[in-house]
Design a binder for these strands. Structure first.
Length: 427
RNA sequence: GGAGGAGUGGCCGAGUGGUCGAAGGCAGCGGUCUUGAAAACCGCCGAGCGCAAGCUCCGGGGGUUCGAAUCCCUCCUCCUCCGCCA
């Protein structure tokens, strides 16, 4: 949730955000006025009730006071109903306002305004025409797109043999790497409640991107009990500490988690329909940090390095870009994307996204901390980054490590995780 | 899935219609004492909104009442037993 004190900063995003901010401000003004009136009435009722508790219940004073209070009580109920409506409307508007970009984020309308932070490694050269992973994978018999369609439909893929083994190995490889530099490992549920998604900012705005479970619903069905397939472990791990107050000295806390991710990808029809890039279900190791606000930008750089270490250890050529105001997500204050080189497609593709959300998620999910014992709780800052997407890592390995004969060399660092497999060949 | 029981502040726990944001204990913080620590004693000690006065919060939502932690309905969660099961 955007901090109302940051309303001016959010305008840097441009577009129609200005109108939304103005609408919220007007509503909030009304809300505060009504709240003041209502509080006055409630104070009167509380005082009167206290006097009443001392009266003889059979006395005529009691009876007349009760009749008077009944009128006041009715007025309060009406006020409460009105206020509830305004509050619901106001908080709905606030929930739909995006995060304010950090001052260091370049201004721009779309990805063309993103800036390259650095490039790691050299573009590998081939003395043959490099193939796209979908051709390589099918030829090797390890990516079975047809079977995925048969079982579950478009945008699902069956991984066979070495691709399956690579998935298992990559999950362990990445988690071990992160645990080695101080992350705590967790294995969360794959299904999440509506409140969790609201906490991290996927809801209420992006429900169309999610798979919701169609459970039997009675007449008293409460939408708050709806369940969704999680689109990213960011949701589960961040909500690990929803409604929690960290004590002084407990921060920063860093976690890594593997979880399958599910995205409806509504509106993405026609793009990336080939291969493993954009699937309804994919695997990802996620990194999440809870930190004190004054440290969050230093932590963002460390988090970026932790994600980059995965690609470096695997020897994959990539670049890091700073997303501009028009390209950062709804919830982010600043985001770096790691883009891995895909020679088969002659382009860089996003493989990890690393963001500082500042207090945006913490305010929604009520994740707080005390700077010192006895202090008032304040919202923490949360950060997360892919550490990293498994499917796209397989894509990058297949494309960057491909050989003239159509086989693929397994990166040395990964071999201990795949039973010593050195090369993927057609079996 | 069936039958019972229970959800109160960081934790334990009292409170069954009125002066209760809520006894008491533990933990924590400050102090006295002590060379220091422990013990003992004294004080402080939930969160949110509001400039403030003040208001709200006793699992969530709804209802009854002048007034609800307390009564009613409903949902959620936990515990015990039975059933089923990787």
């Amino acid at each position: 949730m955007l901090d109302p004190a940051r309303m001016d900063d959010v305008l840097r995003r441009g577009g129609d955000v200005g109108a939304a901010v103005a609408a919220w401000r007007a509503l909030d003004e009304t809300r505060r006025r009504l709240q003041g009136q209502l509080d006055g009435h409630r104070a009167a009722r509380n005082a009167a009730n206290e006097r009443m508790s001392k009266l003889d219940k059979k006395s005529p004073e009691f009876a007349s006071a009760r009749d008077e209070l009944k009128a006041l009580s009715t007025k309060i109920k009406e006020g409460e109903a009105t206020l509830a409506t305004i509050e619901a409307e106001s908080s709905q508007k606030l929930l739909l306002l995006p995060n304010a970009p950090d001052a260091s984020v370049p201004v721009g309308a779309d990805e063309s305004a993103n800036t390259v932070l650095h490039v790691w490694g050299d573009k590998p050269t081939y003395d043959f025409q490099p193939q796209a992973h979908w051709d390589l994978g099918e030829a090797l018999g390890i990516l079975d797109f047809e079977a995925g369609v048969r079982i579950a439909g478009a945008r699902f893929t069956v991984l066979r043999g070495a691709a399956s083994k690579l998935t298992r190995g990559l999950i362990n490889f990445m988690i071990d790497l992160h645990v080695g530099v101080g992350y705590d490992e967790v294995w969360p549920p794959a299904i999440v409640r509506r409140a969790s998604l609201r906490g991290t900012g996927q809801l209420p705005k992006f429900e169309h991107d999610l798979f919701r479970l169609a459970l039997p619903e009675g007449p008293d069905h409460d939408p708050d009990n709806d369940l969704f397939l999680s689109p990213t472990a960011e949701v589960q791990v961040t909500n690990l500490y929803a409604d929690h107050i960290f004590e002084a000295g407990e921060l920063p806390r860093s976690f890594c988690a593997y979880a399958p991710c599910f995205r409806a990808e509504a509106g993405a029809s026609g793009s990336d329909t080939r291969g493993l890039i954009r699937q309804h279900q994919f695997d990802k190791v996620e990194l999440v940090k809870f930190v004190a606000p004054e440290t969050s930008y230093a932590e963002l750089e460390k988090l970026r390095e932790d994600a980059e270490r995965v690609l470096q250890t695997l020897g994959l050529h990539y670049r890091t870009v700073t997303l501009c105001t028009g390209d950062i997500s709804f919830t982010s204050a600043k985001t770096y994307d790691l883009e891995v080189w895909l020679p088969g497609q002659d382009r860089f593709r996003e493989i990890s996204s690393v963001s500082n959300f500042e207090a945006f998620q913490a305010r929604r999910a009520k994740i707080r901390y005390r700077a010192a014992t006895g202090d008032k709780p304040r919202a923490v800052h949360t950060l997360n980054g892919s550490g990293i997407a498994i499917g796209r890592t397989i894509v990058a390995i297949l494309e960057q490590y491909q050989q003239a004969d159509g086989s693929v060399v397994v990166p040395a660092a990964l071999r201990p995780y795949v039973g010593g497999l050195e090369r993927i060949v057609r079996s």
